[in-house]
Design a protein around this nucleic acid. Structure first.
Lengths: 332, 332
DNA sequence: CCTCCTTTGTGAAACATTTCATGTGCCGCC
DNA sequence: GGCGGCACATGAAATGTTTCACAAAGGAGG
């Protein structure tokens, strides 16, 4: 009795057929009925499982895709990971997950490991520039690298416009844009651009405070303090935060300061994160189509013909009221 | 010019040495200084990357571990995934992630795919029984299969006791245990056992409502309604929920019913989930040592000597106040 | 009945690596 | 100087697939 897993050779011997015949059976290539039955019986008996690595080595194809994420503890990222995983499994691909913690060295290390593993492609949401082998299919999320690397993203610009439009529609006269995170000319920066553009086109004066990585969060508190009027209220009445997470933090801050939400100030975030379990939103928000993003990434990555893939795929966002805006009752 | 990636053969030719010599260099096997320099220079020049799959095929070792989870959208699961990923990367292993949605067929399919991929081991949090090849190193989380399969889990029994003890200590006289999820004789069921055991040993009468998968959540509402006294209050004053998620849902429910938390009823959950970003807990809870669990899984999975691994590894939990209990002010 | 064509099973080669038995060269010792 | 021994580079074999050129078999047509 052999201790290791059975191979095609074993199956061939057991079935009394040639190696190539066994291969054909497992690849769905036409083969005589009697042969197929014999092979299937033998495989069943031996408990044969095809060895994907050997198959991949021969075909220079591994049926494996690497997903590189800053982390998986953020609701948006985990939703992304889950949907991408499902989409890949459906197409009989496996997913290698790499978590980088946004550190450039880890990101680069991941790229290298990915190349060593000879994956069939990479889906990456990386914040830092990286040298990626142009020959390896790569789909980027939320970050534009070059025309050769398709970038899948939400309509961040449109979402920013939508947020501004919504705030104005709901009666705001002094809107503000708040942002944290690295200013790396990524797609997500367009959220602010869209917001500002709409305000400008409507000739509405707006304010903005954009913090980069490492800058003190306390600056937000100072910002609000500087906007207090003599009666203790704020002279701003609408806030658009670049992410739901930031919105959540800002809400806590405003709460501490005794500002009433949404009566005094209305807040809109971006992402579409919901409280786990209850399903209720953290706040009014612009929802990203996570599942659609995942599907799109997988589709483009596995497309055979990589010649006419658009460089930038922009998916539509939607607005959802979530208790931090003054929606008209019964409306919407 | 060859279009494909360079191989060891290319490096050997470029360096003017034999194939075996190149192999030795990349495996850290002693080799003449001059040879090593030549090989390294050639590899650098060609941009050679070792092909892990070919290496794995030869060695019957893939340096890949599969993680099977019901989902990655639950904070506990995603934390687990992230920590396991990091722990594996540190040891130069990669992680294949499979998401099963708790469906038995998907779980079984994953096991099969995992076997086809010839991974070096599996870490699984699966709710349904599965036929796992005994020869493949397998570490289970929260579910005991057999003495041959090490099961890593928190001290669920102790956590249940701790929750009961805490509620009683904080003045509760009529504690209740609530549970949802499948009753599959998994380790997590011990949370209720511990809770009940402590109440019994203290001779405190307690109540319990345990819902299995598929049962109507509305039963909880009925339960509370049946516990209303003539003055509209509840005759229960402490609740231990089997998970933070359930606690969250129960809190919403009690809120709707006009019950004040924690004045009227104190609530303790289980898991240690926090609001993303703000870091504040959802509720008072028994915290599972997620990182420790992840580390332990990886350690046991990669241990060479699999002969004396304990069948059950039980890690200590801690209690954290989170606003849904009446902690003495300034205390703790 | 023979030939030719078609259909289909066969097994060797190739994929990129590791390992191992072999061979080469160098040094020291008698 | 010759010989034994040691260190170390060498390249063939092996790992489990897929593919492809080839051969064998079977059927049809003359």
């Amino acid at each position: 009795m052999k201790s290791s897993q059975p191979t095609m050779k074993d199956v061939a011997k057991e079935a009394g057929v040639a190696l190539g015949t066994v291969s054909k059976v497992f690849n769905g290539i036409a083969v005589g009925e009697s042969y197929r039955v014999k092979v299937e019986a033998a495989a069943q008996k031996l408990g044969y499982q095809v060895n994907q690595y050997a198959r991949g080595m021969r075909a220079s194809k591994t049926y494996t895709v690497a997903l590189i994420l800053p982390g998986v503890d953020h609701p948006f990222f985990s939703a992304l990971a889950q949907h991408i995983c499902s989409a890949l499994l459906q197409r009989d691909y496996r997913m290698l997950l790499y978590v980088t913690a946004s550190r450039p060295d880890v990101e680069q290390q991941c790229i290298q490991m990915v190349q060593q593993n000879r994956v069939d492609g990479i889906i990456g949401l990386t914040y830092n520039a990286l040298e990626v082998d142009e020959s390896l299919p790569f789909v980027s999320i939320d970050r534009f690298f070059s025309p050769n690397v398709p970038c899948v993203t939400s309509d961040n610009y449109g979402g920013g416009r939508m947020a501004a439009e919504k705030l104005l529609e709901l009666g705001c006269r002094h809107p503000v844009f708040l942002r944290t995170g690295s200013a790396n000319s990524s797609e997500t920066d367009k959220r602010g651009n869209g917001f500002k553009a709409l305000c400008q086109s409507r000739k509405i004066p707006f304010d903005a405070l954009e913090l980069d990585d490492g800058q003190d969060f306390g600056l937000f508190r100072e910002f609000f303090l500087s906007h207090r009027t003599h009666d203790g209220k704020l002279d701003i009445d609408g806030i658009f935060c670049s992410t739901d997470l930031l919105a959540c933090q800002i809400l806590t801050l405003l709460n501490e300061m005794g500002v009433r939400i949404p009566e005094d100030v209305q807040v809109i975030g971006f992402d579409g994160i919901r409280h786990y379990g209850t399903g209720t939103p953290y706040c009014s928000t612009i929802i990203q189509p996570v599942k659609k993003i995942a599907q799109t990434c997988v589709d483009f990555l596995l497309t055979k013909d990589r010649s006419n893939i658009p460089a930038l795929i922009c998916l539509p966002v939607t607005y959802a009221a979530g208790g931090t805006t003054l929606e008209p009752v019964g409306g919407d």
